[in-house]
């Protein structure tokens, strides 16, 4: 019975893994194929890897785009994690009627499709372009700010704080830590897995963010990776081998971040802190 259960778990997970990996593998295989083969869904590796990469690096400035995306994603991630965890902690630990109401209102901000607020947002950044060019149109500041302040992660941290053992906070206060001390010395280390999960998701969101960078960034040298890939695809005769190469290169950083962060999802970590 036990063995049967075990076997079915592995079978299920293996099927899930295959289904999940398949398109990813195809994406990687496609890098080695020429455009014609990609459009026909060829599943076998080809011989065009070098040619595709060569053409990619010759025709587009992928390195600056990677750098831009990395800068934006890193700043966004750090900023989001810091602000959202502070707020999530604040809303849950210092719960009051007033804060609950404010929190509910903040949740509302997630509910509108971005396309609807894009034009007013653009106008807002446009109006400060002359006085504060660092936050105006075509600045990285303008790309980061609206995406780094999101109720999504405040909500996430607040929900996780609900499961956070409150007596740890009391203990910290007794030890004479200031409120921020409690937050940074006790809460942050204890919630490592929560931060890891949030970091993966923010990094990924920021890395893949398309619509907002598209409208707010103008000069080609500030382009992020998704914008560059969008350009590659819009030609009348797109080269899918090259597009796939760009896509794979663009995907690796997020996969890497996930790989590094998921190590924190080891069962029992909380137990040791709590004990």
């Amino acid at each position: 019975m036990k063995i049967f259960q075990r076997a079915s778990i592995y079978t299920f997970l293996t099927i899930a893994a295959i289904v999940s990996i398949f398109p990813f593998l195809w994406m990687i295989v496609s890098v080695t194929n020429k455009s014609v083969d990609v459009t026909q869904g060829r599943l076998l590796p080809g011989t065009h890897l070098v040619a595709n990469l060569q053409k990619l690096f010759e025709t587009v400035d992928i390195v600056p785009a990677l750098i831009n995306s990395t800068i934006i994603a890193l700043i966004s991630t750090v900023l989001t994690l810091l602000l959202a965890s502070l707020a999530g902690y604040g809303f849950e630990m210092f719960r009051s009627r007033g804060k609950d109401i404010v929190f509910t209102i903040l949740l509302l901000s997630m509910m509108i499709p971005f396309a609807a607020i894009m034009v007013p947002l653009y106008r807002m950044f446009g109006s400060v372009t002359n006085t504060m060019p660092l936050f105006g149109i075509d600045s990285l500041g303008a790309v980061i700010l609206p995406t780094a302040t999101t109720a999504f992660f405040i909500f996430f941290f607040r929900q996780n704080t609900k499961m956070f053992p409150k007596d740890l906070v009391e203990a910290g206060r007794i030890d004479g830590l200031s409120e921020l001390g409690v937050f940074f010395r006790i809460y942050v280390p204890t919630m490592k897995t929560t931060y890891a999960a949030a970091a993966i998701i923010t990094f990924m969101n920021s890395w893949n963010n398309y619509l907002w960078p598209l409208v707010i960034l103008q000069s080609p040298e500030k382009r992020t990776i998704p914008l560059l890939i969008s350009n590659l695809g819009s030609s009348y005769s797109p080269d899918y081998g090259v597009i796939m190469s760009a896509i794979v290169i663009a995907t690796l950083p997020t996969a890497l971040v996930f790989f590094l962060m998921q190590k924190h999802f080891v069962a029992g970590m909380m137990g040791s802190v709590k004990g």
Binding site: I75, P133, L134, S139, L140, G141, I144
Partner: peptide
């Protein structure tokens, strides 16, 4: 953070 990235942006 925004400034430094902005600086980098405007140097291009």
């Amino acid at each position: 953070a925004a400034c430094s990235s902005g600086d980098e942006a405007s140097s291009g």
